[in-house]
Design a binder for these strands. Structure first.
Length: 126
DNA sequence: TAACTGACTCGGC
DNA sequence: AGCCGAGCCAGTT
């Protein structure tokens, strides 16, 4: 499927109004401290489904329909790579947002990722 | 209806 | 140290 138009879909809207896996992901993502990052796997692990990291990323894709908005730019893959930058419209939109939070990005990759890494299962008290 | 895809991750070679 | 295959869940074709 080629470039899809940024047109909100109706059925996805239903999901947002219903508590689901998406809501959980967004809820965790929203609690990421400013200037910190986390990975899809970490969120998935926190939710108890660490093998479903794909769904987390996929839920991020739907974060566009989330209210309030989800800082999806603070979520990267396990090596700190901005794997989702493509979904931010502009090619470097994600990087720009990260740099705005003093997060250095080099070669589409978060610098000092291990230091900035924020593990919800470890830092977030349930 | 079945098969494919994906903003991922892990383990094996 | 890098490449490959498998597992995961839901939506799309």
């Amino acid at each position: 499927m080629a470039k899809a138009k940024p047109q909100p879909k109706q059925h996805l809207k239903d999901i947002t109004s219903n508590h689901s896996f998406f809501e959980n992901v967004w809820d965790v993502a929203r609690q990421i401290p400013k200037g910190r990052v986390t990975s899809y796997g970490a969120i998935a692990n926190y939710l108890g489904t660490k093998m479903s990291a794909r769904m987390v990323g996929w839920a991020m894709g739907a974060s566009v329909y989330a209210k309030p908005k989800v800082p999806a730019h603070r979520v990267v893959n396990r090596v700190g790579l901005l794997s989702g930058k493509i979904h931010f419209g502009a090619a470097d939109e994600m990087q720009k947002r990260l740099e705005k939070e003093k997060i250095k990005v080099e070669n589409d990759k978060v610098v000092n990722f291990e230091k900035l890494f924020w593990d919800p299962a470890n830092e977030l008290i349930l």
